[in-house]
Amino acid sequence: MANLKRIILLAVVVMFAGCGGRAAVYHDKNMDFGSIHTVAIMPFMNLTTDAGAAERVRDVLSDSLLATGAVYVLPSGEVARGLARAGVNSPSEPAPAEVKTFCSFVKADAVITGVIREYGEVRSGNTSSTIISVSLQMMEAQSGRIVWSASATEGGITIWDRLFGGGAEPMNAITQKAVDELIKKLFA
């Protein structure tokens, strides 16, 4: 009986270990994040099949950051102009030197780059759901080094979905949740 209890306990621990750890975060301890007032959000790298995913997540992030009132986000048109002037080859993964040049043109204190790893519908057997997986990095203007990095995943197929079915959450809702989680990590 005691063995059975241990096995059950171990199974529960393993199960929760699998469920947790969906997000990682890095903060540069030497960085004063209070000095960042203006941020430019670069076009995101899109690893999904949805061509509009990067654009949607970028816009939601831009609005959400502005809505916090803590930082000012440059409009995407100004970012595009700055990228053209600075001659940045790959806006989704700029080199530190490119970040410095770009920030001097647009007068930004930091840039945010990102990768959309998953966006859209996922299916497993008869069950389907929506999922988003995003990772972001912040590079500061003075040196071009990474000062913050975090990722978030929302949605996906849960045990509840498998057992009872039910409608998937709309993409907009889970995008907002993932972005909120990332912002929380940024200001943590």
């Binding site: 409009p75 048109g77 100004e78 102009r81």
Partner: peptide, 10 residues
Amino acid sequence: IMNDGISFAN
């Protein structure tokens, strides 16, 4: 010409 939206110069 708006490239990805309006810039401050525009």
